[in-house]
Structure formats: C-alpha cells, structure tokens
Design a protein around this nucleic acid. Structure first.
Lengths: 115, 115
DNA sequence: ACTAATACCTCAAATATTGAGGTATTTATT
DNA sequence: AATAAATACCTCAATATTTGAGGTATTAGT
C-alpha cells in the first residue's frame, strides 16, 4: 500500500476511468476491481469510496440505479454526460501531471553519466 | 496549475529530491526552482512550503543553517542522513505509484486498436 | 519616491482520507 | 445446523494537509 499522501486526489480519476470503461459498476465492485488491477497496491477504502460516490452524484458527475439481488440492493453507478467530460479533463490532467513529476523527480542529473 | 487534489502529498518528495540534487537551498529558492522546472505548472505556495520545511526539520529529515545576506537572513536547508534515506524511500514509492497509475488509468482498452 | 522582487512567517478555514464504528444478506465451511 | 467469511451498503469523529489571506522587512530597479 502506498502512503496516504500519495493517494490523495487519485480516487476520483480512478473511479471515473473504471466507470467509463465498464459502463456501470457498484461500489464494492469498484473497490475489488482496483485492488485486483493494482495487485493490492491501491485500496479504495469504503470509508473513502462511498462518500466520494455520493459527492460525485450530488455534483452531477454520476447517476445510479438500484438493482435488487435477492434481498440485497446494489447501487450501479454510471457517468453522466458531465461525468464523461470530467473524466477526460481529469485524465489529461493526470497524464500531464505524471509527465511533469517525472521531469522534476526522475531527472537524475548526477547518476548514469554517458560513458 | 494542477488541481489541488493532484498536488497533495507531492510537496515532500519534490523538496527532498531538489535538496538532494543541489546540496542546500533556501525556501524561496525551492519555490522558484520548482516553478521554473515545471514551467509554472507546480507552485509550492509559501503557505504550504514553510510549514512543511519546519515539520521536516522537526522530524529530523532536514537541518538548516542561517546565512546573513546583508540584513536579511536566509535559511539554507539540507538533508540529514535520515533525510537521504527518506528521499530514496519516497522516490521509489513515487516511481512505483506512477507505474501503477499508468496501468490503471491509461490502459485504454477500447482505443487505438491494433490495425 | 515608488514598485517589484526577495525572503521569511502565521493561522483560520476548507477539504479529503482514515479508521473504526455499524447493519444486513449470502455463501462456504466444519 | 452453526459459524465464519464474503458481499454490500453506510456514517462520522479524528487527522492531516493545503489553501488563501494575512503579515513584516529588505533589496533592487525605475
């Protein structure tokens, strides 16, 4: 697991990307998917995930429909049109951010000199 | 400028990397350096930077010496031995984190199919 | 004389994450 | 049949960090 600081601000972009890719998913499914895809390195803790899903819904980024599975109710979330746009914005911001971080952090001016 | 969320948790690793690279730097110099190296994309705001430098000093990651320039006093910070180790830890964590994010975020299963 | 840049600082408010609490159903195990 | 583990949702106080706005003072440029 990565340090808390590193994970801050990544939850939204991960959720939007996965929802865009899979069409609709429910909370538990999202957390399992992320754990699986990152070999356990990133955990969307439900104490973070559910409040985030509620906030994104309130903000018009997501909508959901409830589906009964036996006596249990799942909430399937999907992107709204605004959510699709927000996803694109966040993805390109993340792409650019990673590029910038690599430049600052991994410039390695002093190591691996050309022989 | 990137969104606040994206920037969370990156301040420490940036500061440690720059100090390791340049030996000793003072706060204002750090903020200028980052602005310059990232083409203005990352701003270490002094409301964030100075408290962070104080915390890192308190935690034994940094030490500083005061140097008088005329009537002004600069605080030159540098890494302690613990700081050097912390820098290595944070850098490899960041490296790994970026790799993981790229995997989750930029998998692009549906775009750019092989022709 | 004035403005911009340099150089440091503090602190209340805003924000997000954690961690621990919880309820309830379904599936697997002994 | 009883129990444990997994599924599926939720809340909320505490924690931690960043922001944004406040500040002081010196030096350089016009």
């Amino acid at each position: 697991m990565y340090s808390k600081e590193l994970l801050k601000g990544t939850l939204e972009v991960i959720v939007l990307k996965l929802l865009s890719e899979h069409g609709k998913m429910y909370g538990y499914e999202l957390s399992q998917k992320v754990k699986e895809e990152t070999d356990g390195k990133i955990h969307l803790k439900d104490g973070s995930l559910y409040p985030a899903l509620h906030k994104l819904t309130k903000d018009g980024i997501l909508t959901f429909e409830e589906v009964s599975i036996g006596k249990r109710v799942r909430k399937y979330y999907k992107l709204t049109q605004i959510g699709e746009e927000q996803k694109e914005t966040l993805l390109s911001e993340m792409r650019d951010f990673i590029k910038t971080m690599e430049k600052v952090i991994f410039s390695d001016l002093k190591t691996s000199p050309a022989i």
